[in-house]
Computed example of a mutant assay.
Amino acid sequence: MNRLQLIRKSEREYHDHCYEHDELFKPGSWLHKPVKTVMELLPMLEHNKDVNVLDLGSGVGRNSIPIADYYKEKAGKVVCVDFLESAIKKLGQYSEQYNVSHKIHPVLSDISEYSIPHNEFHLIVSVSALEHVDSERTFDEVIENMILGTQIDGINCIIISTGIKETMIDTGESIEPMYEILFETNHLIEKLERVYKGWHHIKLTVRPYAIEIVREGQRVRLESDVVTWVVQNVCCREIN
């Protein structure tokens, strides 16, 4: 088993366990509530008659279900892409439970293999997912497709971990992080500033993050920066 296969196996086991044992919007896990930054963006698109949203790495609907509920009286859709069957299955159940199944469009696919239609979406969101594509080259391709898939005045919201470190709690030993891409924080920000040149900056924050997790039955301290990047496509806006 190569490094990528090992990481994907670990990722699948972690999320399958989480989705099985932690209920969406119930206290006690990171599924407790949607990301505040994502929800704060929704009023910015209310003027549109229809709102199309793409959630890359949607999981069971932590963000996409509240988004669908917010726009449930409008035309449009919330496309939810995830490579885990367990996530897509639970997403379908939760979308029924929260009465937004008419808005939710689940897609079982690796993020990098999903073809984003050009000029389709008013909002594209990716929370803790893009660091799990298989290479930096693939990351660049996904970002380019996100840009091409965003309508004029549309918004891209990326939340991603950088500077990732993992340490065995019982021994203090540093171990190789189980993440596909290990971005350094400054490198990622410079990349995003370059590829999104001309877009309007709404938000850029870098915040430290630490949590205890379990890897193969061992307690591990996971530390990283969390970069929040939110920009709006004003590049081709017509000026009267």
Rank of each mutant, 00 (worst) to 15 (best):
K33V: 07
P106H: 12
R215Y: 06
Y98H: 12
D140L: 07
R207P: 00
V107I: 13
E184M: 08
S161R: 08
F139V: 02
A68W: 00
S174G: 06
L91S: 11
V38R: 04
W229S: 11
D110A: 14
D134N: 11
E193S: 09
V227H: 03
T167Q: 13
I147M: 05
I158T: 00
E238P: 06
Y14V: 13
N145R: 13
N63I: 00
K74W: 01
V220R: 06
E120R: 12
H102R: 13
A210W: 02
E141L: 14
E190N: 13
C235K: 14
I116C: 01
H47K: 14
L41E: 10
R8L: 10
S112K: 06
I124E: 02
A210K: 12
K33M: 06
K33L: 06
D170W: 05
M168F: 03
G92F: 02
I147T: 00
K26M: 08
E144N: 10
E120N: 10
D16I: 07
P177R: 02
G154K: 02
T162P: 04
M168Y: 04
I164R: 03
V142P: 01
C235T: 15
V60E: 07
I175E: 08
S58E: 10
A210P: 05
A68P: 05
V214N: 09
V234T: 15
W199I: 00
